[in-house]
Design a protein around this nucleic acid. Structure first.
Lengths: 328, 328
DNA sequence: CTGTTAGCGCTTTCAG
DNA sequence: CTGAAAGCGCTAACAG
């Protein structure tokens, strides 16, 4: 494996010059630049990540930690999120990898931190009072959470403005004349913002809890008339289950949108279109959100490990009302 | 961030002693070991991955490349594979990360190689004459493929002995009196080993192509009587679709196992049990296969980048006939 | 059993 | 615009 020194010798320049043509951090004449690049091509030279990381301070690598990625089929949103982060981070000249964690305990986090090869970590799929946030925080590692959790201290995160999202969705439903609103969610806990919005609009809420997969939607459709007969409007926080619910509805004598209006707040546009009829959504630009998460991660890394720079600040992904209420 | 030097000073020993208590590569007296460990704990010292990689030769890190992980929900087998590799690699004292690649072109591979931070790569989900295998090969990086593809040169891989698997599965079906065999697969191409086995057993084969997801199984059940009426035995190469097919069968007037016998050759035992009735399987020990893949990867790394040691050799995952033919 | 020392390949001042 | 040289933190001889 050739080194920077080999390149320098072949090109007849100094080692630092090679570094600078690579990094572009200082002006280099076109002629030497050309010679260096020719030498690089000729030798098939590749920069050594470890050496660069060692010499250059914190490694230019961000680690995504996301759990349950392989145990159960993830939602399409998780996919868009990962892709977005990869690209956001790459735009900043960093790289990203996924650190496979199989569960929600934090031994995998410890291991990553001990390894110390990552300049910072992006934590996804956070749970309530996530122990991993505590671990990352006390380790003093730069990290950004994609999503939010209450842990009792300030930390960097990127999230949507759900307060506005929920209010908007419920307002649409209310304007359509719905009073009894079902909430399609994987959790039995009502989101406080949702609760607050429903209260202020004087709407009744009914949790419709199911798993976010194809089966979850089918089961819901099957049970709908039995358990949720009074529900006429649905706000859905899931994606896969919602699509299958809508697609299966007619099999169980439910007519959409005649019987119920359904609006997805946590769904890719592309998925919404895969349902028949197409599901109305409050647009969730998962990809853009993730891109911005990646960029902010890099900003945090570069600001230094213990930077309070933007800590606890709220970065909201673009909230766009596409007004796609065709189905409603 | 404290370094090995800080630890050494605090413990009153030399820097190399600290290294050696960490690596265990030479005997250290219990007393100094204790002092060093105390100092490490006190300082919260973490070894620097980049420095270790730089000083110690090839980095102790293996990279898993697997595509389509986020575009579509992966099968349960992919999950078992990733988990198994992580553990196999960890048993060898290495670490592993996932390198997210969104497509089958090899620009992501190039980028990983240019980064040069990985001691070796495990390639999953290979396609026919996979371009990434060519790229890895000509880069001279240690790599192991989980699965096989024809590329015109020898490379390290780990795979099941499908020749035996198919022969065994078809023999079971034949012994049950089936002559017309459906092949449930995501591809329209008949596996040559399967074709060969069918021929030698004088069985008729009919491709039943579908996508490996819940919908794929439903569609197949719906269309079964129309398109595959003559099929009485099925060999399935899919997992998710097969489970949903079996579960949906009765809704479409198909009685299993009265009308058809179905046997899964590419399915986790746990998934087979989630169908009603339980699906018969030729056991696929995905996890064990992946563990061995991880271990072999490390072996290849340590043998040196251009080692021919085991190149082109066939490592077959354990093939275990559990004899679970209850449903048949 | 322990200490000393020479690098690993790169980045980044400091000097031209 | 370019070169020289001092490290980054660790590993692994080499020398006790």
């Amino acid at each position: 494996m050739s080194t920077r020194a080999d390149v320098a010798k072949l090109a007849g320049v100094s080692e630092s010059t090679v570094s600078y043509v690579l990094s572009g951090k200082r002006p280099i004449s076109d002629s030497t630049k050309a010679r260096v690049q020719a030498a690089i091509g000729q030798l098939g030279y590749k920069s050594n990540y470890a050496a660069a990381a060692l010499a250059g301070g914190s490694p230019r690598m961000v680690t995504m930690m996301t759990s349950n990625l392989f145990l159960t089929p993830p939602s399409r949103i998780d996919g868009a999120l990962v892709d977005g982060i990869v690209n956001g981070v790459r735009d900043c000249g960093y790289h990203s990898v996924i650190w496979p964690i199989s569960n929600d305990d934090d031994s995998d986090v410890e291991m990553l931190l001990n390894l110390n090869f990552s300049g910072g970590v992006i934590l996804m799929n956070v749970v309530d009072n996530d122990p991993r946030v505590h671990t990352l925080h006390s380790a003093g590692v730069p990290f950004v959470v994609l999503g939010r959790t209450k842990v009792g201290f300030a930390y960097n995160y990127v999230d949507r403005d759900f307060e506005t999202v929920y209010m908007h969705a419920l307002t649409i439903l209310k304007n359509l004349g719905h009073i009894s609103i079902g909430v399609l969610s994987a959790s039995t806990i009502v989101n406080p913002y949702l609760k607050k919005a429903a209260k202020s609009l004087k709407l009744n809420m009914k949790m419709m809890t199911t798993t976010n997969n194809y089966d979850g939607g089918i089961i819901l459709a099957r049970d709908f008339k039995k358990y949720y007969a009074d529900v006429t409007g649905i706000i859905s926080l899931l994606d896969i289950a919602t699509v299958s619910f809508v697609n299966a509805a007619s099999d169980f004598g439910i007519s959409i949108p005649n019987d119920i209006s359904i609006i997805g707040v946590n769904m890719l546009e592309e998925q919404a279109e895969s349902a028949t009829p197409k599901i109305s959504t409050i647009a969730f630009e998962a990809y853009d959100l993730a891109v911005s998460c990646g960029k902010i991660m890099v900003e945090v890394i570069e600001a230094g490990k213990d930077s309070e720079k933007r800590k606890g600040e709220l970065w909201v992904g673009d909230f766009i009302d596409r007004g796609s209420t065709s189905q409603l």
